[in-house]
Amino acid sequence: MNALVFFFDNAILSGLIIGAIYALGAIGVTLIFGILRFAHFAHGDMMTMGAFLSLIFAVLLQSMGIHSPIALAFFGMFPAMAATALIAILFDKLFYKPLRDAGARPVVMVMASVGVTLMLQGVLRVFGGVSARSMYIGSPKAIFQFHLPDATRPIVLTEPQIILFVFTAVTVFALHYFLTRTRLGKAMRAVSDNPDLASITGIDIRHVVWATWIIGGALACAAGTLLSMDVALKPDLSFNILLPIFAATIVGGIGQPYGAIAGGFLVGLCESFAVFNWSILLRPLEPMFGVDFPSSLAIVPTEYKLMIPFVILIIVLIYRPTGIFKGKVL
């Protein structure tokens, strides 16, 4: 029983946590990919920027003398989401729109987004330094333990993890409502589906582009903040988080927000299953099989965690480039 609890904590739960982060990031990437038709390389640093903004707002709240049982960073996240969305639109105006208007090929936009990501990285590290910091100012992180009857080991959930799950669930429902019930949401799907027809139909592409950056930016900020609350705010996230997010996007099918969510959880769970030490789960079964399992039985050593999204990506590209939800192959 202890082994099962350990498995639940370290494989399933940790997979779901990182999966939720990937999903929140991948929704933005897939919408940008579907509507603006390029892979947005600046998404990882946009997440870091969002986390920094949340921290700044949290410090502001603290200095105003506000206290709360829930971490201030969480309350700081909402103004930070709005700010990140605005900055995303600003970036579009400054860097992407001029290229779009000049009829640049999508791959030039990819390059521009690499330029943007480097600029963000530079600014964040100049002002924020290069060391990791805690998002918990003031109050410490609350930890909840759930004891199961047969186990001595508890199921452990921390405050940011609970916030993350609730936030992700609310986001998924809100996004579903937005995309299927509102005029702008449907227009976004229409543009992603068939941009030429959308412009013939008189859909205002500008609004759709704005909506895309608002959703993408706000969710990137949320993902960055929640990840930093769970672990720590690290300014060097960038490319390491980008690869699993792209993998999630492509696995889910480009332009498919639900696919991105599924892909995010899939990649997250695969990662945690791959580095999980299966011998812990198998050892109680040793008498049954009458064999000794080696003490470490992870599929992939932790150092090579980054291999997992990459391998998933390669397998999908070879065998099913449209992804599980039949996205576009651009």
Binding site: P98, V108, V114, G115, L118, G122, R125, V126
Partner: peptide, 21 residues
């Protein structure tokens, strides 16, 4: 010092976007 050197990251990014545009 380490922050100052990060400024060069910014300049590399800025150069890419400016040249492209």
């Amino acid at each position: 010092d380490s922050r100052a050197l990060q400024m060069r990251v910014f300049v590399v990014g800025l150069t890419i976007t400016l040249v492209l545009r």
